[in-house]
């Protein structure tokens, strides 16, 4: 009885966190996708999804973890790893501090462990509120530490991507994180461990061109913008406008790069099912 009650309370708290920082503060919100006016409360109840058209508003990293983890509970790992200013880039320190204050996070990624459907896993979540979820050396380091932790404990890994790509202020060191995270995933793969990549709006640039595209299973949220080159850069290069729906999750699935598009309301169940299906397949393993 108390268990059920606690579950409901956690669920309610999760819903509150979901809307914390992404939805506009007004009581009535105009959906950017369908233009309908919808009650903020209704959007919140639908896990930050427009009740009229299904548009998925972005959600914060903590909200994402609460949404998928059993009992909305998880334990954060490697919180201490913070961005430095390796190139002494002017103004970067202030930008970082502002992002930290705004989000309450130390960096654009959270590494956590918890259970989904009763199965322990490691989950990394990029939070696009923090400098567009861009890949700093600290983000790459935290992801790599998370992957290495996963390998040591032989757990399944889930990475939720939401990123504009590279952290410009860290220049080449941001670029190198692509190789670093990809090499770490190679080790995870060699150990026969499961990696599920979940692409959310937006997943672009160096994140798409590294860990986000390397999942054994790749899921995406409906309508998420996913690609390597930014739409504006492509338009400038080819001198024409882009077709409707270009670089959206549905477009990528049609071209064979995504296993399934999963609406937010079904995400936890989909992940739980995938974790279940990948258990116990060790008998014929090579390694």
């Amino acid at each position: 009885m108390t268990h059920v009650f606690e579950k409901r309370r956690n669920r309610l708290r999760a819903m509150k966190e979901l809307s914390e920082s992404y939805l506009p503060p007004e009581q009535v919100i105009t959906c950017p996708s369908c233009g309908q006016e919808v009650a903020r409360e209704e959007v919140e109840r639908a896990l930050s999804v427009c009740p009229a058209c299904g548009h998925h508003f972005p959600i914060s990293g903590p909200a994402r973890l609460r949404l998928v983890m059993d009992g909305a509970k998880y334990r954060e790992l490697y919180r201490h790893v913070q961005a430095g200013n390796p190139l002494d880039f002017p103004g970067y320190d202030d930008k970082l501090r502002a992002a930290q204050e705004k989000t309450g996070l130390d960096e654009a990624v959270i590494v956590a462990t918890g259970e989904i459907g009763g199965r322990r896993c490691v989950a990394c979540v990029l939070d696009s509120r923090f400098m567009m979820g861009s890949m700093s050396a600290a983000v790459g380091e935290k992801l790599t530490l998370g992957i290495e932790y996963t390998v040591r404990r032989a757990l399944p890994l889930i990475i939720f991507s939401a990123s504009g790509g590279a952290r410009m202020q860290e220049g080449i060191l941001s670029l190198m994180q692509m190789a670093k995270t990809s090499a770490a995933l190679a080790k995870l793969s060699q150990k026969g461990l499961l990696y599920i990549s979940v692409l959310t709006d937006p997943t672009m640039g160096g994140v798409t061109a590294s860990f986000a595209s390397l999942g054994d299973v790749i899921l995406a949220e409906p309508g998420a913008l996913i690609g390597f080159a930014g739409p504006r850069v492509i338009e400038q290069t080819i001198g024409q406008s882009l077709p409707e729906g270009f670089q959206r999750a549905e477009f990528l699935m049609e071209h064979g790069f995504i296993d399934a598009i999963v609406p937010r309301s079904g995400l936890r169940d989909a992940l739980a099912k995938l974790l279940m299906l990948h258990e116990g397949g060790t008998a014929w393993r090579k390694h």
Binding site: S182, A183, A209, F211, F228, I234, H255
Partner: peptide
């Protein structure tokens, strides 16, 4: 840099680069 174009995106520019990075490391 990698080519920014419609066909390149349709055929998975990001995925192609990611696979190079991962496989090359091994």
């Amino acid at each position: 840099g990698a080519y920014p174009g419609i066909a390149a995106e349709e055929r998975g520019q990001g995925e192609a680069i990611a696979c190079c990075l991962m496989e090359m490391s091994t």
